[in-house]
């Protein structure tokens, strides 16, 4: 089944990590996506980035407190929000 045709999961999340989304957080984010069969995009003020690309995510320059949108496609898309929520809580990494 083409992922593009499956209904997208969308939600919003706030970055609570003290130093924003820096290398370590972006790395974890990419790992979460790599561990699941899903395609995840992060959107900041209308600008999307592919969560599997650490450079794409880093270049959004997300500081602590940023409110960002997410879309996830794919069979395991529903498992993504919880993990990202944990990562963005700031207790998991950095």
């Amino acid at each position: 089944m083409n992922r593009k045709t499956t209904p997208a999961l969308t939600w919003e999340s706030r970055v609570n990590n003290p130093k924003g989304i820096h290398c370590r957080v972006a790395t974890r984010l990419a790992e979460i996506v790599a561990n699941h069969d899903a395609e995840v995009r992060i959107i900041n003020q209308g600008e999307p980035a592919d969560c599997s690309s650490i450079l794409d995510v880093l270049s959004l320059g997300l500081a602590q407190g940023s409110l960002v949108g997410f879309t996830a496609h794919g069979p395991e898309a529903d498992k993504i929000p919880v993990e990202i929520e944990r990562l963005f809580s700031g207790f998991d990494a950095g």
């Binding site: 924003g20 880093l58 270049s59 959004l60 320059g61 997300l62 500081a63």
Partner: peptide, 9 residues
Amino acid sequence: FDHIRDPYI
């Protein structure tokens, strides 16, 4: 990257 406001990132 030059457009990023947060100096740490």
